[in-house]
Computed example of a mutant assay.
Amino acid sequence: MNENVTALIDLGSNSIRLAIYKKDHSGNYEEIKKEKVAARLITYLDEQGKLSPEGTRLIIDTLHTFQKVINSYPISNVIGFATAVIRQAANQEQILAEIIRETGYEFILLSEYEEAYYGFVGVIDSIDLNDGVTIDIGGGSTEITLFENKEMKHYHSFPFGAVSLNTEFTPEPQVTNKQLATLNTYLITQFQSLPWLSNVKYPIIGIGGTVRNLGRIYQKKNNTKENKLQIHDVDKILLEISSLSIDERSKIKGLSKKRKDIIVPGIKTILTLMEFVQAPYFMYTEKSIRDGILNARLNTRGRQE
């Protein structure tokens, strides 16, 4: 078996992802294979907060599919980690036990701190910034950190993400101005709960599917590779997308068809945060929490406590 080939399975609220990495002679990890299933697991939580049997079955079936891919590579190290949807599930222990029983994979259940920290680690060495704010918008949670001199100073995990916000605030095929105003009020209230976040005037660095889609839409519209957006750029994209029905959004270049129904609350979260922080700009990156786990667990950068 090749100790330099590692598989990561990211069990998230919106999607379940497999990424296979190969370590080169310089000690850097290159992604050589990736798979994704848009499972929307957050929608399988019932009124008692339990993940339904259907949701658990979806996880197992997806992992069996991933297992076939993993077994076709010389992999000696499989790292599975779960985030908000399992963290929020009242039956999390039963779910994790069933995963082990059915697949043999033992998943790490990340705490709110770990999810925020690994997202921060995933981007900090890839950007030329000493001070900033990071945001990772998932399906059922949103992690925000504030860093200074490249060290994380504050973090918070909000119990909402693109899927849950869409379910609560923008569930119809056509978004209304009233819905956006209600969502804006909610987001401001949430951000106001963090005194360290107000008016810091640092750039915002985003990771995650919503962020990648926003960046790609901007690049397609402007025929550029620029990854920095001003507040008016984000506002313009939000206005255009929110004016379209879900079906009409399919014509937006750069927008994933699997994300077209939840993109509006995701971008609205970014825009509201930019206004609240008074950010000079928003930067998107292709890095992810998976890069953070690779760096923190398999490389020399130590994990903070």
Score class of each variant (00 low, 15 high):
F120M: 02
A90R: 11
E172W: 04
Q192G: 06
R303M: 10
T285M: 09
I108H: 12
T272E: 05
M152I: 09
K34Q: 11
G55C: 12
M1I: 13
G27Y: 09
I100T: 15
V264Q: 01
G266K: 01
T182D: 15
Q219V: 10
G266P: 00
S141A: 07
Y105V: 07
Q190W: 00
L244W: 03
A296F: 02
K225E: 15
I188M: 10
F81W: 01
S72M: 09
E112F: 02
G161F: 05
L238Q: 05
F169T: 05
I252H: 00
M274Q: 07
A116R: 01
L194K: 08
E115D: 04
E102Q: 15
D61T: 04
F160S: 05
T182L: 14
I237R: 04
I205E: 05
R101T: 15
F158I: 07
Q278N: 12
Q88D: 15
L294T: 02
G55A: 14
T285N: 14
F66V: 03
E305S: 13
S288Q: 06
I79F: 07
I241K: 00
K228E: 10
T145R: 00
I205Y: 03
Q92T: 13
Q67W: 07
K220D: 06
I289V: 13
R259N: 06
L110P: 00
G138W: 01
V234P: 03
K225G: 10
P53R: 09
N91G: 12
K225C: 07
P53V: 10
T6R: 08
N177A: 15
T65K: 11
E30G: 09
G104E: 13
H154L: 10
T134I: 13
V277D: 00
E275F: 08
R297T: 05
R212L: 11
I135Q: 07
T300P: 03
K268Q: 08
T189I: 05
E54D: 10
A39S: 13
T142P: 12
I99F: 09
D233G: 06
I205K: 02
R101D: 15
E143D: 04
P159L: 09
S157C: 11
H25T: 06
G140E: 06
N199V: 08
N77Y: 11
T176A: 14
T182I: 14
L273N: 01
K253R: 05
K201W: 04
M283F: 05
L109K: 00
N299Q: 12
D233Y: 02
G206N: 08
F107W: 03
G208I: 05
K23W: 01
S52G: 05
L165Q: 02
P195H: 09
S52K: 06
N213M: 02
I267N: 00
T176S: 15
T210W: 02
E30V: 04
N222Q: 14
Y281R: 07
T56L: 15
M1R: 03
N149M: 08
V264K: 04
D128T: 15
L273C: 00
S198K: 14
A97E: 14
V78G: 08
Y155W: 14
G215T: 07
E115A: 01
L18W: 01
S76W: 03
V200K: 10
N177L: 15
R249M: 04
Y186N: 06
P171I: 10
L146P: 00
L229K: 03
S256H: 00
P74Y: 11
I32E: 10
K220F: 12
E168Q: 15
I252W: 01
L273D: 02
K34N: 13
I293A: 03
S141E: 01
I135V: 13
A116F: 06
G139R: 04
I246T: 12
V211L: 00
